[in-house]
Amino acid sequence: MRIGIPQETKNRETRVALTPEGARQLAEAGHDVCVEQGAGTAAFLPDREYEAAGARIVSTAEAWDADLVLKVKEPVEREYDLLRDNVLFTFLHLAANEPLAAALVAARTTAFSYDTVQLDDGSLPLLTPMSAVAGRLATLEGGHRLLSSQGGRGVLIAGAPGVAGARVVVIGGGVAGSNALAQAVGMGADAVVIDLDEDRLESLAATYGDAVRTVVSTPEAIEREALAADLVIGAVLVPGHRAPRVLSRDTVLAMRPGAVLVDIAIDQGGCFEVSRPTTHDDPVFTVGDVQVYCVANMPGAVGATATAALTHATLPYVTAIAGGWQGAVEADPALARGLNTDAGTVRYPAVAQAFPHLPADPLAAPGPADR
């Protein structure tokens, strides 16, 4: 199979969908690996390393004209004309992106989304490594924005001798939220985590003891904790669906002057009412006296680390798809759940629900267990 790896086009996106070592494994399996010229440069993976691994360096058009196209981020509008009736494997977040859903349907693309590949236990094996990276970055970026030089409250997350650390509130205790929490605790924050799942809160309490205060999620609790916070990190995820809005504009307007919001869920539409996507070049906007950080490709800030982590997770699935996607779907329910569009129809139930006017034939894959 001819496998294409285009260069990413999203603002400051430094990741690439495949490392040279991943390219070597696919080439040794007999596949024709076509990497767009310069695709790995921003992750410090030069073309010569791909060529040494057995890949070919090609143009943009050739990379997109492959049987299977691997990307990191969803195609942006200027790439819609490159879509066709081949297989695309990338992050899509379609439930929050109607124009892309319509473009994939129109192009008859067989599109699998990393973020909806889901194991029987409900876990998301391809989203997990990037969620972990984004969670850790959220605390680091939030701490940076709290500096007076950045317009923040002048509060150090770690505090100082005799001075408490910043109050960091994490909404959502999943992979991204727990990694944000771990980073906050490690930096010495006065940390709070809010979640609906009391078992999850109990587990976090057992891990961190008195270093973290756990709170069961209610609208009243979220408002109360946000008003007392220096930094609020939103990490709410409903797999495949648009993120629920858990923090109102009115609450944001009443927060402490110089406080910071970081919305990790922005790829799925954002979990704060005020959220809108931002870029690495222009990462924050203000609502009242609060800074809001909503960069939609946070792991792009650490492209070398994130590219390696993503390839480790995706390569087994890429190998399966390259052997024939229909057979791969039949053999692996987790991959079947990742199918979002095919043959001019929406196949993922939550996307069909979000955009009922698009033609749909939801795939009847077994649902995750124990959810």
Rank of each mutant, 00 (worst) to 15 (best):
R24Q: 13
D81V: 13
R242S: 14
G323Y: 04
G177Y: 11
L45K: 03
A52C: 01
A229V: 12
E220Y: 00
V292D: 07
V58S: 02
A205M: 04
S113K: 02
E36L: 01
L83M: 06
C34P: 00
T116F: 02
L119P: 00
L147P: 00
H31C: 09
E28F: 00
G186Y: 01
N86Y: 09
T305Q: 13
G4F: 02
P129R: 10
D282N: 14
P239M: 10
D342M: 15
V155D: 04
K73P: 02
V236G: 09
V72G: 02
D342H: 15
D120H: 11
V33R: 01
I157D: 08
G162R: 04
G209F: 01
R136L: 01
I266D: 10
T251G: 11
G177E: 12
V105S: 09
M130N: 03
E225A: 08
D281A: 15
R48C: 07
V351K: 07
A354R: 09
V252W: 13
F91V: 10
H144E: 14
L124N: 05
S59K: 04
A53C: 06
R153F: 10
A180I: 13
A160H: 04
E273R: 07
S113D: 06
E51N: 00
A331I: 07
W325H: 14
L26D: 03
L83H: 06
V35T: 06
L92Y: 07
R242C: 08
E141D: 08
G300C: 05
E225C: 07
A182V: 01
A134Y: 11
G122V: 12
T345N: 02
A243S: 15
A235Q: 08
E198S: 09
H144C: 03
H31M: 08
S178A: 15
F272G: 07
R145T: 04
A189R: 10
I222V: 15
L126C: 01
A229I: 06
S113R: 05
A53G: 05
H312Q: 12
I3S: 04
P99K: 11
H241L: 11
A354C: 08
F355N: 09
A132L: 01
D120I: 06
R136D: 03
E51T: 15
S113H: 02
A29N: 05
P283Y: 12
V274D: 03
A43E: 11
A164S: 10
G38T: 05
C271W: 01
N297E: 07
L261T: 14
T109Q: 09
S149N: 09
V168S: 09
D32K: 07
V252A: 14
R15Q: 11
T251A: 14
Y114S: 01
E79V: 08
P366K: 09
S248Q: 14
A254V: 12
S59L: 06
V252T: 15
T305I: 08
V155A: 11
V192I: 13
A132M: 07
S148I: 12
G234R: 05
D190N: 12
V212S: 00
G186K: 02
A320E: 11
V185W: 03
L68K: 03
T41W: 02
D67Y: 01
A101R: 12
L339A: 10
R276V: 06
A229F: 06
L70K: 01
R145C: 09
R337A: 13
